[in-house]
Amino acid sequence: MVDEAAPSGPAARRAAVWRVAGTVVDPEIPVLTIVDLGVLRDVAIRGETAEISITPTYSGCPAMNMIALEISLAVEKAGLGPVTVRTVLSPAWTTDFLTDDGRRKLKDYGIAPPAPAAGRRALFGVETVACPRCGSTDTGEIAPFGSTSCKSLWRCNACREPFDYFKCH
């Protein structure tokens, strides 16, 4: 068991920082941590400083600044600072980075997880999205751009409930 308050050596500190940083959640979808999302890329210990790399989900995602701030706060609060957060672009984030755990949490939260990316580039592709509540695939898209960049709005024809779908990217 590593003592998080006083980790000894860079390897232990790195693991402790990773664990604390990994508790930060997406401000728009608070059931997902940045580990579930695949946003937390790397932790490196450089001298005194813990350097944390995150990757943006979407080019204009306004949650990134918030996530970077919360990581700094969480790590410093745990006594593991000082810390810098940097953004890495490559390889570009895709919904394939979502962990299986993350997909299950999304569904439990009422958001349909992204379907495999097949047909995304087809000009008029037809996607099959299962309702996160009743599981029916008798669903239809209401609006391709939803309340955040990552979601579209759908309706289930079986249970009649509207729901969010985490779009494939």
């Binding site: 390889p91 570009a92 995304r120 580039r121 391709p144 990217h169």
Partner: peptide
Amino acid sequence: ATLAAIAAKAEKESAYHLRH
């Protein structure tokens, strides 16, 4: 490499813009 990474993100977004 940076241009390629920016493009890899942007092409997913532009695909939705084109369709819509």
